[in-house]
Amino acid sequence: MRSAEITAEPAEARQLSLSFLRPSRSAMIGTLAVLAFLVLWQIAPTMGWVNGRFTSRPTEVLLAAIDIFQNDDFLYHARISLTEFVAGFALAIVVSVPLGVLLGTSKIARHLIDPPLMALYIAPTLVLLPIMVIWLGIDMAPKIAVVFLGAVFPIVLNTMAGMSEADPKFLRMARSFGATKFDIFTRVLVPGSLPALLTGLRLAVGRAVLGVIVGELFVSQAGIGYQLNLYGSAMRIDRLLVYALIVSAFGYTLTVIVRSVENKVRDWRSK
């Protein structure tokens, strides 16, 4: 009997990769490009190509960073911004996941709520910031609201899509084994829509970070955005850049984390 096929190695056997010890060509080029940019940035003001007052220099930014971490109440401002981010984001998850599930499983609900939802997803929800300030004052509340508004729609829409676009062949297979509606929901729809939910979360991170910063730039008494505004109007570009970089690093890290989970989950999907 022929059964060579079984002994064949699986299509994508995982191997321990040591490739990071030998940097790839693309990583080297990327690093070189960044270095070139930093050098150019450093010497451009000295050479008189740009006005150093507006551009600062990498070395100045580095010194400003050290200074800020030591004595600029950095942790205080970071905590405020982080609180706004976490509160708004958590609220968005609590609202959007159940809503997305409802819309994904009920066609009528979907048709009913989809148009206003799409409109708010497409429209710049940040325009609601001034009205949030009227409603909620100038403390953390309007920023939490803006973070919420930014994050909620991508999560709802992606969860909904993940639920409603469940592969019909899985549904038929489950039915053939006598699965109940509840079985199909918990064992097919929910795990099947997990990657879409994570995509929603990833898109929401960017919008939420933007929400915090725009909210604080617009009106605030503390927070990273407040500091940005402060150093911007004082023309302390070095310090401004430090805070901007911190926000970038935060958004970047969070996005990378969610993306890596997402990729792991997506790996399961057959191609």
């Binding site: 990327g30 490009a33 507006f54 970070v209 023309m235 401004l240 850049l241 901007a244 970038s248 970047y252």
Partner: peptide, 24 residues
């Protein structure tokens, strides 16, 4: 490869954070 780090930075940085810089 050369553009990637900048694009990633741009992607994750809320552009508005640089607003004061642009005004300057």
């Amino acid at each position: 490869s050369a553009l990637e780090p900048f694009i990633w930075f741009k992607y994750s940085a809320p552009t508005v954070a640089f607003y004061p810089l642009f005004v300057a």
